[in-house]
Amino acid sequence: MKIVLALGGNALLERGQPLTATNLRNNIKKAAASIAAIAREHDVVIVHGNGPQVGLLMEQNYEYQKINSAVTAYPLDVLGAETCGMIGYMLQQELFNSDNKLSITTILTQTCVDIDDPAFNDPTKFVGPIYSEEEIDKINIANPSAIFKKDGDYYRRVVSSPIPQDIVESKQISNLLENGNTVIACGGGGIPVFKANNGNLVGVECVIDKDLTAELLAEQIKADLFIILTDGAVYLNYGKENQQAIKNITPEELDKYHFPAGSMGPKIDAVCKFVSKGLGDAAIGALDELSAVIAGHSGTRITLDEMVEYY
Rank of each mutant, 00 (worst) to 15 (best):
L79K: 08
T250S: 14
Q65G: 13
Q53E: 04
F96M: 10
D281M: 13
I139C: 04
V4Y: 00
R301F: 02
D153Y: 09
G189Q: 04
I46P: 00
Q220F: 09
K195D: 03
I104W: 00
N143I: 08
E82I: 08
S132F: 11
N248Y: 15
A214V: 01
V183F: 05
K2D: 05
R157S: 08
G296S: 11
A142P: 04
S34A: 09
N179T: 11
G239W: 07
I107V: 14
V54P: 01
E135Q: 13
L76P: 06
E63W: 13
K125V: 10
L304R: 12
A214R: 01
K150G: 04
G80P: 03
N200M: 12
G232A: 14
N61Y: 04
A233I: 00
I228R: 05
Q220C: 06
M90R: 03
V234K: 04
F96S: 10
F120P: 05
E252H: 12
Q92D: 03
E252R: 11
K101P: 00
N181W: 09
K101V: 03
A32F: 05
P144A: 11
T303E: 06
G9A: 08
H258W: 06
Y131F: 15
P118R: 08
K150V: 11
V183T: 03
S34W: 01
S291D: 12
G16H: 13
E253D: 12
N50M: 05
M58Y: 09
T72V: 13
I173E: 01
A36T: 05
P266A: 05
T109N: 08
E133F: 13
E94L: 10
L212Y: 00
S103V: 13
Q220L: 13
P144F: 09
E14R: 15
A286W: 01
A283G: 05
Y155P: 03
M86C: 05
R156S: 02
D281H: 13
S263E: 07
K30G: 06
S103Q: 14
V71F: 11
S276Y: 02
T213K: 06
D116T: 15
N100T: 11
A70R: 14
E205W: 09
M58R: 12
